[in-house]
Design a protein around this nucleic acid. Structure first.
Lengths: 330, 330
DNA sequence: AACTGCTGAGAAAACGATTGCTCGCCGATG
DNA sequence: CATCGGCGAGCAATCGTTTTCTCAGCAGTT
């Protein structure tokens, strides 16, 4: 692969001039610039990224640390991130933390080491990843979940409010024993949705005892939790499910037990998906603006990278309830 | 951020010794090595990635160029890639080409410029991206789709055979007018599935005329195509759908027309998903080993990066038909 | 004609690591 | 006692850019 000196030699100028010409910097004699461009073209010259990064002390790379790309919610986020990053000439490295604080830490180390321009982080636990990043002057934007300590830029969904709303909706539809299936303790979204569920119960004047189960945010763990919930002596007549993957397990469990969503057990789940309207009855959901979250967070991060030193912000996008058949007892 | 010279100074040794000690190279006096490690630790030293990359003339980064992470099939692939890359100490940059050859080309340029160690490519069209990469000695592994020209390493699914099998299955179930909804012309998987469909028709001794529609591989475009297909003067009594996103549109279209999958129109779709068993009747699918494809391809690529110069290989994983209710007329 | 500004290009110094080469020092051998 | 061999550490070159500094040359002013 051709280097800048080869281009310089071929164009009969110095490397400095080549660099300037290629970067459209300063004023370079148009004739020379033309020669340079031509020479670069003929040699198929591509500047060496690492060299440039070393010299400029910056890279055009963002790290995106999420729990799992296979979760459609994070998939949409990552698409949003990638789109705006790409438009700005940045690349995105994808990191699956699996909600494991150790893996998260490890990825943060890599990000630091590679001197990425910024990090989009969906924090797994109460770790201090974000602080370590900021300690090294790497801009961070938290996404979907707030940072444990300290306030960095954050893009959230008012998930607690949405959970409350969904719970109230179930109550309004006549369900009385409302259960909740949420994610692991310590994961903010899981806890917030649970809190919102409790808000809703209180607002509706209901008290279900503790019809609550936790599992990982995945389908496998949720299956067991769903069965356990439905096997209560006094089982719930409606369930708020904290994400899409778990909803699949809940619906499967109901099916196995010969129970029909809506009629027998009301169901509202977080995260919309194309298939939710295909099932009978269609699944009521809390739709989250995942793509926009990714895009917004990326924009924010690029702003910080660009030297924006204004106060850190917390952007809260709103989720909205999409009531469908699975939460209508009629 | 501390540099190697600061560590060297603090430990009272040369940078060379620090480098060797930190990389566990050669023989360094254990006492010195201890001092170095301690110094590095106290300073929170992380080697500067770009500098190291420049010097070593290599990076620990793979580029993954796929059409769209929001497609669950590619999501699973990317997860497979990321897992094995991570285990090997590599990072993955994610690139969505949207099946646009220009965008693909652009990403290839970036990959070249950043001197990534290798590229996993799901080629969009009949472009020459792979050749350009190989011309610059960047290892490439094609994934899901063969390379237009030239044979580089490739990881495929025997999609044509699977389509044939699915078609025969529909025929066996008693359907007679088999239609096919596939992807854009020129996308190998789309063409292969169509070819497999035709193979199946021939093998079954059926001739449906041309009950074929093409659309992009997305839900929106597929909706129109599905309606058009079902509005034929003599509409199909079964449809082979070439991917998951399009299947959603087909099922939605059937629902709108008051037709029941299986009973009125048999349906088999490519790509399994958690929700396919939740609908009534459950959706028959051709399940593809997407995660394994990603993992396999990444392993292959890492092998090439490691200097494996043996003949290029074509790995064909097999998809398997999962017959469910949507293809039983009974 | 001498001096001042100004423009534009080249020389060379970074950036921060890795690594080939050199060299000092040690004990061992002839 | 002189030399040799080997070990371990440092010096300095190197990777390919960008960018500061310097300087040559030219035009304009007095």
């Amino acid at each position: 692969m051709a280097t800048i000196s080869e281009v310089a030699e071929r164009a009969g100028v110095s490397t400095a001039t080549v660099s300037r010409a290629l970067n459209g910097k300063d004023s370079v004699d148009p004739a020379l610039a033309g020669r340079v461009l031509a020479a670069a073209d003929e040699l198929g010259y591509r500047p060496n990224g690492p060299a440039r990064n070393l010299r400029k002390q910056e890279t055009a790379v963002l790290a995106l640390i999420i729990s799992d790309v296979e979760n459609p919610f994070f998939t949409a986020i990552s698409r949003g991130v990638e789109d705006v990053a790409h438009d700005a000439g940045y690349s995105v490295v994808l990191c699956n933390s699996d909600d494991d604080p150790d893996k998260e830490r490890e990825y943060v180390e890599v990000a630091l080491q590679e001197r990425v321009a910024g990090v989009l982080l969906s924090p797994a636990g109460r770790g201090d990843s974000a602080e370590k990043l900021r300690a090294h002057d790497t801009p961070v934007v938290a996404i979907d979940r707030p940072l444990p300590r300290s306030g960095g830029d954050t893009v959230l969904v008012d998930t607690r409010l949405a959970a409350r709303e969904a719970t109230l909706h179930l109550a309004e539809q006549g369900y009385r024993r409302l259960g909740c299936l949420t994610g692991p303790e310590g994961v903010p979204t899981a806890d917030d949705r649970l809190a919102g569920y409790r808000d809703g119960l209180r607002a509706a004047g209901l008290d279900s005892g503790e019809l609550v189960r936790r599992s990982d945010f995945k389908a496998t763990g949720a299956a067991e939790a769903a069965h356990s919930l439905l096997a209560e002596r006094q089982p719930p007549d409606a369930i708020l499910v904290a994400n899409n993957a778990m909803a699949v397990s809940v619906l499967a469990a109901l099916d196995e037990l010969g129970m029909r969503p809506g009629r027998d057990v009301g169901v509202v789940a977080f995260d919309d998906a194309p298939w939710t309207v295909l099932i009978d009855p269609p699944l009521s959901v809390v739709a989250q603006p995942a793509y926009d979250m990714g895009a917004t967070a990326a924009q924010l991060l690029l702003g910080r990278i660009g030297g924006d030193h204004t106060e850190t912000t917390v952007t809260t996008l709103s989720a909205h309830l999409v009531p469908r058949g699975s939460s209508r007892s009629g």
